[in-house]
Design a protein around this nucleic acid. Structure first.
Lengths: 119, 119
DNA sequence: CAAGAGTATCGACACTTGTCGATGAAAGAG
DNA sequence: CTCTTTCATCGACAAGTGTCGATACTCTTG
């Protein structure tokens, strides 16, 4: 490791985001990193009570029923939606706190002066 | 299309997010939906001036140089970073406005009472 | 120009993901 | 119980993605 050329800069760079935190955050963002799922969230959020029946999501989304079901599952597993059975129908309701959490994760260092990070 | 069972609800659901907008947003979120890229953003954001030399990113990230280069390219193409050559070294600087834009995209209908949407 | 250091691109690979048709499971109606 | 409606799961496929070694490119130095 013989360095002939000078270093470009002080090389501070304290590791901010840990590996585990990064993986967790990434999987959360993966959940919304799909056009269909974003539209699902949008559709549901636009409903009164921020909830919707699956039967009302399939047609406007323009995807096959199994595909919609799959996307809803992904969103639910990411904690962005909660399922609730109502008679024959299945309702999905938005979890605003979870959305807010993702929003906060995108806060720049400037935005959060001295906040302690927990999850 | 003969419906025997009653509908589950009024079926309002005005299409909120258009297909094109959804695709664009999704590709933006795809850019940050990766542990390595999130850490890159975090590392760079933590630097003074929110910029960093590639040579200082490879080791802390723990990935091979071509992989890091690839991730940086993805982030740059998403508009989250800008490249700048400085002598032999390549610097990547964070674009806060772009991060903010993603943040705003996650704003719930409750959060934005009557805001006009542009992008 | 030649040599060396820092990065980007290429090629290849394993793995993940979005999609849909077919099928199965849960709940209400008759 | 049988039929129908609604939704989830299964299986399979094409396409996309992360990863790295090898290689090419771009500056600077001598």
């Amino acid at each position: 490791m013989k360095t002939k050329l000078p270093r470009c800069c002080p090389s501070v760079l304290g590791t901010r985001l840990k590996r585990d935190d990064a993986e967790e955050l990434a999987s959360a963002f993966k959940a919304i990193a799909d056009p269909g799922r974003l539209r699902l969230l949008s559709f549901i959020a636009a409903q009164p009570g921020a909830e919707a029946c699956v039967c009302n999501l399939i047609e406007p989304l323009g995807l096959a029923q199994p595909t919609v079901s799959h996307h809803l599952k992904v969103l639910a597993e990411a904690g962005l939606l909660v399922r609730e059975r109502r008679a024959t129908w299945m309702f999905y309701r938005l979890v605003p706190e979870r959305v807010r959490a993702l929003q906060d994760a995108l806060a720049l260092p400037v935005d959060k002066p001295a906040t302690k990070r927990s999850a």
